[in-house]
Write a protein that binds this DNA or RNA. Structure first.
Length: 351
DNA sequence: GGATCCTTCTTCTTCTTC
């Protein structure tokens, strides 16, 4: 009865399920009507995303019950210790040194660019061998809570799939992400000279990415004037680099766009973890980079789903981008501090 | 030829009630 109650609550869709994993991963989908404990997933269009929820759930099916899983957890990881409330970083924290997000550019473009293929500046690592990348900096400055939850997730996945199974699972996720990105690059490059981005002919692409492409088709129809794809950006004052996914107009607003694939629905910006910080880092670098003759103030994170459910598009205003830019500056400072600590430690050891 | 780089992903409670 305990389980049936939960199953019956998934957006009114009856889903065969009998494992505690459901409780763990999808209890957020319950029809919690009290405002006090409202889950961020409770207002998801559950009918629209029921197929996605089902597919995620069916991939995690196990014959275990909540009790056996809990017993297993305790056996494998020890007694459950409640984690500290995810606090991320104190909101009052500000960067020690402020850097502008936007930069004055003498040759700033004010007109619409001429039609033509989008820019694709290739990253030449040999020119800047020691400059850290956006991804690396974000990885090195994860909060203790993020590390805790990621490690817990990994332990649970390894317990479920085994070391080899987990490795295969991770590689598959990366592979799908890469295939999706290369398909998108192909689509956006070929559409760049046209007024509209026509719906892609999904059958031309590998079967693994067809669902993702279908998922983003409604977003693509609002994308125009693609200016850059998979293009390197470098901030010479702050000394970091990265490769952004795309710069294009979304609903008439020039944005840095980040395309993501996800197994779980991410209907809210808060579900995307560090993605907005990553986006602000790319935009700030682009705005500082002389290779780009324009400024980008807005951002867009598009989360695509394998089963073709409509992607979630999170547009970030210039104000929001500025907030995340400051968060990025803090992360950058943390990374620099870490590096200098490491350098002084190794210096001490050598002495 | 091999190693490394930039990406690609992954996290977010402990509920017993309508």
């Amino acid at each position: 009865m305990f389980i049936l109650n939960r199953v019956a609550c998934v957006g009114g869709t009856v889903v065969p399920r009998c494992t505690a994993l459901f409780v763990r991963h999808f209890s957020a989908c319950r029809c919690l009507r009290s405002a006090k404990r409202r889950s961020p997933y409770s207002s998801v269009d559950s009918e629209r995303y029921s197929s996605l929820v089902k597919s995620v759930m069916s991939s995690r099916i196990s014959s275990q019950t909540p009790d056996t899983l809990q017993a297993e957890d305790e056996h494998v990881y020890g007694p459950v210790v409640k984690a500290a409330t995810p606090s991320s970083r104190p909101e009052t924290r500000v960067p020690k040194t402020l850097h502008p997000f936007l930069h004055f550019k003498e040759t700033l473009e004010t007109e619409e660019p001429e039609s033509g293929p989008p820019a694709r500046i290739v990253l030449n690592r040999a020119d800047r061998p020691l400059v850290p990348s956006v991804t690396r900096i974000l990885q090195q400055t994860l909060s203790p809570e993020q590390i805790f939850y990621l490690e817990r997730w990994k332990r649970r996945m390894v317990a479920e799939l085994g070391e080899e199974g987990f490795k295969e699972y991770s590689q598959n996720l990366f592979r799908q992400g890469k295939l999706f990105h290369s398909a998108l690059e192909d689509i956006l490059s070929s559409c760049a000279t046209r007024e509209n981005t026509n719906p892609p002919e999904t059958s031309e692409y590998p079967p693994e990415v067809q669902g993702y492409l279908e998922s983003i088709s409604h977003v693509l129809s609002d994308v125009r004037a693609v200016r850059a794809t998979e293009s390197a950006v470098y901030h010479d004052t702050l000394n970091y680099l990265g490769i952004l996914d795309c710069v294009a107009c979304y609903r008439g607003v020039l944005c840095v766009i980040d395309w993501k694939t996800s197994e779980k629905p991410k209907p809210f910006l808060s579900n995307t973890y560090d993605n907005p910080v990553q986006l602000a880092a790319y935009a700030g670098a682009l705005n500082n980079d002389a290779n780009y003759k324009y400024q980008v103030e807005h951002g867009l994170i598009v989360v695509a789903y394998k089963d073709g459910s409509p992607a979630h598009a999170h547009q970030l205003s210039s104000e929001l981008m500025l907030e995340y830019w400051n968060t990025w500056l803090i992360r950058l400072e943390e990374c620099t501090e870490q590096r200098s600590r490491l350098a002084s430690t190794s210096f001490e050891q050598k002495r």
